[in-house]
């Protein structure tokens, strides 16, 4: 049995990433959806046709990184809140993650937040670069948070006082 069935933590070797992802200078999606569940809205949400669920609705979404323009609609549409956009080189010395955040209050732009990994362990601090809410995101607020470059594949939740 696969580890995530007991831990609830995704096995990253099951998640597809662009080649040389560390060198990317734009946002790309990390789809942490690795289980055969009946769900396909991500594939319909993408205006560029970069995500597809081929055949049965329970098949795992496939991503064509070349087509993605980082619009973030899939992040808001995913019912599992399992899609994150990652830019490992957001600025010269920072990376950034766009994550869904369905809690109130929302953080303020420019504020410092604590970052948490997939196990809920605090791993550092980040700065809120943007907060977007839209009907296109099914009213799931999307938060862009910048951080040390080596944290972009780990940070998946934020908290602040």
């Amino acid at each position: 049995m696969i580890a995530y069935k007991t831990t609830g933590i995704v096995d990253m070797e099951l998640v597809s990433l662009p080649q040389d992802w560390e060198k990317q200078t734009r946002f790309f999606p990390v789809i942490e959806c690795i289980e055969k569940i009946p769900c396909n809205p991500c594939s319909f949400s993408c205006p560029k046709g970069a995500i597809s669920v081929i055949g049965d609705i329970t098949n795992i979404p496939q991503i064509d990184f070349e087509r993605c323009n980082g619009c973030s609609i899939c992040v808001g549409k995913c019912p599992g809140l399992a899609i994150f956009l990652v830019n490992p080189n957001f600025s010269e010395n920072k990376g950034a993650v766009i994550l869904p955040y369905e809690f109130r209050p929302l953080p303020e732009k420019g504020s410092i937040v604590r970052l948490y990994d997939r196990e809920g362990k605090e791993i550092g601090e980040g700065m809120i670069e943007a907060i977007r809410t839209s009907k296109a995101f099914e009213n799931t607020p999307l938060v862009t948070v910048s951080m040390e470059k080596d944290l972009v594949m780990c940070a998946r939740h934020i908290r602040f006082d």
Binding site: Y4, G8, V10, E32, G80, A82, R156
Partner: peptide, 9 residues
């Protein structure tokens, strides 16, 4: 898994 992951993080 996706529901479990939301709680774990």
């Amino acid at each position: 898994h996706v529901h479990a992951a939301k709680l774990r993080r």
